[in-house]
């Protein structure tokens, strides 16, 4: 009986259907990831390989053009992620209130920025943040406030791009929260109201604990997105002024463009290590906090 059943399974669910997908994924994604560990230890021009040990990593972590990339990447990813997690939660909680008549409109409008291409958003905001005639500075001038060189001041550029990143990414986080909030049964709130718990207490004792899965996915998605990000920074500042907005994504591209393939691969391996070192412990920590319904 058992062998007949096994035979039926292997016949009806043939491994053949698994092959096309795994083949593309294996050759284009898995194989490069695996060999990247070896090539990061070499001087490499795509044809000739020379093993040089950990030299690439030493260079990457000491050269002025690359050594700031890791701290910048961490700052960029963590700050944009925290802003999205908190701001989107606040917006979603407000919009989940059924008394707000324009909630569908507001939800669509806030989400609309997420469907636009990052390059288009980057180009538009670069002009809005123009140091002398940009609209933001025009508005500040009208209000009698000091103007800023948003993208050309070393101390402001990274922050300005982070602002645009949050502007663009907020919608996705908000939509995820809204569906999480929609799944929380109204009974909990009614029961809490009878027991005398109001507003803030309901939020911290009911909403937040039951929303942990949504918070987890917003956190993970935006953190991974931030660590891998590249497009917005490349469009708005290209890593400048100086090296003040270099992150791993821009540095790897620049090294690739000037054919330093081994060094670029080392940067990629560092990105891989950072992503894994942050995401896996974080996920296991949060899954412990998840409340069973």
């Amino acid at each position: 009986m058992n062998t007949a059943e096994n035979k039926m399974i292997s016949k009806s669910y043939s491994h053949g259907l698994l092959i096309p997908g795994m083949l593309v994924y294996g050759i284009i994604f898995v194989l490069p990831t695996v060999v990247s560990f070896y090539f990061s230890l070499t001087r490499w021009d795509l044809l000739h390989v020379e093993f040089i040990g950990l030299d690439n990593f030493k260079t990457f972590l000491t050269q002025p053009s690359t050594r700031t990339a890791i701290p910048h990447t961490l700052v960029y990813a963590i700050i944009t992620c925290v802003c999205k997690v908190i701001l989107a939660l606040a917006i979603a909680v407000i919009l989940s209130n059924e008394k707000i008549k324009s909630r569908t409109y507001l939800k669509s409008l806030i989400y609309s920025s997420c469907i636009l291409s990052t390059v288009a958003v980057g180009i538009t905001f670069t002009q809005l943040m123009h140091p002398s005639k940009g609209l933001i500075n025009q508005a500040l001038r009208v209000l009698g406030l000091p103007t800023y060189k948003f993208l050309t001041d070393k101390n402001m550029a990274l922050g300005s791009v982070m602002f645009v990143d949050v502007w663009r990414g907020l919608g996705t986080a908000m939509v995820i929260y809204l569906s999480g909030l929609g799944a929380i049964s109204k009974d909990y709130y009614e029961a809490a109201a009878i027991d005398g718990a109001t507003g803030w207490k309901q939020f911290t004792k009911i909403t937040l604990p039951l929303l942990v899965p949504s918070i987890n996915s917003v956190l993970t998605l935006s953190l991974i997105g931030g660590l891998k990000s590249y497009e917005l920074l490349w469009t708005m500042t290209s890593g400048g002024p100086g090296y003040s907005t270099e992150i791993l994504g821009t540095v790897i591209y620049k090294l690739f463009a000037r054919s330093s393939y081994g060094l670029a691969t080392a940067g990629n391996v560092l990105m891989f290590i950072i992503v894994c070192a942050i995401i896996f412990p974080l996920n296991s920590y949060i899954s412990k906090k998840t409340v069973e319904l």
Binding site: F29, P32, T33, A264, N268
Partner: peptide, 25 residues
């Protein structure tokens, strides 16, 4: 086979693409 395929595919959700080796492939 299925169990390992599954694990490898799941790992791809977080892993960044190794651009230079991909270019080489």
């Amino acid at each position: 086979i299925t169990k390992w395929s599954d694990k490898i595919v799941l790992a791809g959700l977080t892993t960044p693409l190794a651009v230079v080796p991909t270019f080489w492939v």
